[in-house]
Simulated scan of single mutants.
Amino acid sequence: MTDRAAEIAANLADVRDRIAAACARAGRTPSDVRLLAVTKTFPASDAAILADLGVLDLAENRDQDAAPKSDEVRALRPGVPVRWHMVGRLQRNKAKSVARWADEVQSVDSTRLADVLGAAAAERPTPLDVLLQASIDGDPARGGCPLSDLDYLADHVIRSSELRLRGIMAVAPLGMEPAAAFERLAGAAQQLRALYPTARELSCGMSNDLEEAVDHGSTCVRVGTALLGGRGLASP
Rank of each mutant, 00 (worst) to 15 (best):
I158Q: 15
R159Q: 15
S160F: 13
S160P: 00
R164H: 15
L165D: 07
R166Q: 08
R166C: 09
G167Q: 09
I168Y: 07
M169D: 00
A170Q: 00
A170N: 03
V171G: 00
P173G: 10
L174R: 11
G175Q: 06
M176F: 03
E177W: 10
P178T: 11
A179H: 09
A179S: 14
A179F: 05
A181N: 05
R184C: 04
L185W: 06
L185M: 13
L185P: 00
A186F: 10
G187V: 13
G187H: 14
G187Y: 14
A188E: 06
A188W: 03
A189L: 06
A189T: 07
A189H: 12
Q190L: 14
Q190N: 11
Q191F: 12
L192C: 11
L192F: 12
A194D: 11
P197E: 13
T198Y: 11
T198V: 13
L202Y: 03
C204F: 15
G205C: 06
G205M: 10
M206K: 05
L210Q: 03
E211M: 05
E211L: 02
E211S: 14
E212L: 09
E212I: 01
E212M: 12
A213W: 04
A213C: 06
V214Q: 08
V214A: 06
D215E: 15
H216E: 10
H216I: 06
H216R: 15
H216N: 13
G217R: 13
T219Y: 07
